[in-house]
Structure formats: structure tokens, C-alpha cells
């Protein structure tokens, strides 16, 4: 981005001292540029306790989601014994047992996968929509921009939960994929506006003019030069959005419109547990705790990322 070359002394790994090929040099320079951009952010982040707390919880939840049986100690969440139904937490069952006598700890642990999958899929879906539409609107401007922006306004007026609710009710199919799709379709608008405005800022930069002068095609300019530089402001927003999507899935499922019974989901567990709250409050407490901690982890990380990547705001 800057005109001056980064000073390679001390940074060059091993040092390609003689006859370094241009390609390699370019590669090294690119890495230095990247290292400084994210290096600065990382320096700020690792001193931020909020980010560290969020990061530790997020990593832990991700590990749980990837290797649930490891964390559940090999206990099968669907291996239930009705005679053990509704036992309070004990040494044998850390989180007690549910109405069917299943080990609740194993169930809550296995719930992480659904929440994180839906959060991640929704974030990916949102990013795809937001980056494509936002880049097109921001780069081409004029009529394209007006049309795409009005299109965004139309979706913006529909509340996320309501839109997802209608879509899931009429399609009558509730899987991890359809829930994520519904959340993406009604959750991309703010990200699109962020991408659009950052593309507008980036497209007048010198390196875009340079690429144009070198007769790069529009497609090259968009994918190689504009998109990579326009995405960083969206990263912190999407981290916060990940928490939001996880909460939305749980809410939809809790209301009976999201995932359904054979799936293991925190929203479902809270829904079932609420009717027995006075006699077995732990049935609500544990899934709600895991859910809230997961959402909080991403919110904390997103907040810290925003401060680190975008210092102008403070």
C-alpha cells in the first residue's frame, strides 16, 4: 500500500542474499506488509484481557465442537436409562440427567457442534452475499449502486428473526443447513453496507489506479486489489455477528421454529427444560450457561478486534 519499500534488514528470514528472484522478493515483501498490519493488531490484542478471555472460551468451545466425545468422556448422549431420569448433578452425572435419563453433561457437550456449525455457516453465507453485493455496489456506483442499495434496504427492514421464522415455516425443512441459510438471507445487510463503504474508500487508492494503468481487467482489480483490502473492516463485525447468529439459532429453536428433536441443540434443551424448571433448574442452567459463554466469547473478541483494527474510532 505504501510507496516506500519495507526495510528488509533483520526481517528477511535466512536472507536470500545473492540473485534473489523478483518473485521471491515480492513474496517476502507481501509477507512483511501482512505481518506489520496484523502484527500491530496482535500486539494490541494480546494485551487486552477481554480478547484473551473471549479467545480462550472460543478455542475451548471449538475444540468441544470438533471432538465432543473426547470431552464427554466417551459417554453417548443418546445412551439413556429411563430409571435414571431427572437426577440432580452428581459425581456420576456432572450435569445430572434429563427427562429421558440421558447424561446431561454429554448432551450439553454435544450441543456445541450445532451452535458453532450454524454460526460459522451463517457467517460464511453472510460474507459471500455481503462481499459480492457490497463490492459491486461500491465499485461500479451509479445505477448499480442505487439498485443494490435499495435491494439491501428492502431486506434491512425485515427483522432477522422474523424473516428466518417465515422462511423456515414455509419451507418446512429444518436442518443445520436450512437454518444457516435462513439466517444468512436475512442477516447480510449491515455487512454489505460496511463492504460497500470500504470499497468506495479503497477504489480511489493509488494502487487501484496503478492496476488500471497496467491494463488489469475489472475482474482482476476487484478480486486481487479491492476485495482483500476492503474486507478487514468487516472482520470484527463478522466476529460479533457469529455470536449473534448462534443466539438467533438458539432463539428460533427455543420457539419451536429451528431445529427439531433428534438433533442435540442448546435451544432445544432449554425449551424442554423450562417446563421442569422448579424441580430441575439445572436442565435450563447448563445449556444456557454454555450458550451465553459462547455468544459472549465472540462478542468480546469482536469488540477487541474492532478497537485493534480500527484505532480511529477511539
Amino acid at each position: 500500500m505504501s510507496d516506500e519499500l519495507p526495510t528488509p534488514t533483520g526481517v528477511r528470514p535466512g536472507g536470500p542474499d545473492s540473485g534473489a528472484e523478483h518473485e521471491l522478493l515480492d513474496l517476502v515483501e507481501e509477507n512483511i506488509e501482512q505481518a506489520t498490519l496484523w502484527g500491530e493488531a496482535w500486539k494490541t490484542l494480546r494485551r487486552n484481557p477481554m480478547f484473551l478471555i473471549g479467545g480462550v472460551i472460543a478455542v475451548l468451545m471449538t475444540l468441544i465442537a470438533v471432538f465432543p466425545s473426547l470431552f464427554a468422556g466417551g459417554v453417548d448422549p443418546r445412551d439413556c436409562d429411563l430409571t435414571d431420569a431427572r437426577q440432580w448433578p452428581s459425581a456420576a452425572h456432572w450435569f445430572g440427567t434429563d427427562l429421558q435419563g440421558c447424561d446431561y453433561y454429554a448432551n450439553v457437550i454435544h450441543g456445541a457442534r450445532i451452535s458453532l456449525s450454524i454460526g460459522l455457516l451463517s457467517v460464511v453465507g453472510t460474507m459471500v452475499l455481503a462481499v459480492i453485493l457490497g463490492t459491486l455496489a461500491g465499485y461500479f456506483g451509479g445505477l448499480t449502486d442505487s439498485l443494490l442499495s435499495r435491494f439491501t434496504d428492502i431486506f434491512y427492514g425485515v427483522p432477522l428473526l422474523l424473516g428466518a421464522m417465515i422462511l423456515l415455516t414455509v419451507t418446512e425443512e429444518r436442518s443445520v443447513f436450512t437454518v444457516s441459510l435462513a439466517l444468512s438471507i436475512f442477516g447480510w445487510m449491515t455487512a454489505m453496507r460496511l463492504v460497500r463503504s470500504s470499497v468506495i474508500t479503497v477504489k480511489n487508492a493509488d494502487f487501484v489506479a496503478a492496476a488500471q494503468a497496467l491494463a488489469a481487467t475489472t475482474r482482476q482489480i476487484l478480486t486481487r486489489h479491492i476485495m482483500p483490502n476492503a474486507i478487514s473492516p468487516v472482520v470484527s463485525f463478522m466476529t460479533i455477528a457469529m455470536g449473534g447468529f448462534i443466539a438467533s439459532e438458539a432463539t428460533l429453536t427455543f420457539l419451536g421454529i429451528g431445529l427439531q428433536a433428534p438433533e442435540i441443540s442448546w435451544g432445544l434443551q432449554i425449551n424442554v427444560g423450562q417446563s421442569r424448571f422448579s424441580s430441575a433448574p439445572y436442565l435450563v442452567f447448563f445449556p444456557a450457561l454454555f450458550l451465553s459463554l459462547t455468544v459472549m466469547a465472540f462478542m468480546l473478541m469482536g469488540d477487541a478486534l474492532r478497537d485493534a483494527l480500527d484505532p480511529d474510532r477511539n
Binding site: G243, A247, A250, F254, S292, M299
Partner: peptide, 8 residues
């Protein structure tokens, strides 16, 4: 408050 979902 921001982290705990509204229904909880």
C-alpha cells in the same frame, strides 16, 4: 446482558 440471549 449483550451476551445472554433475550429468551434466556
Amino acid at each position: 446482558v449483550v451476551s445472554v440471549p433475550v429468551f434466556v
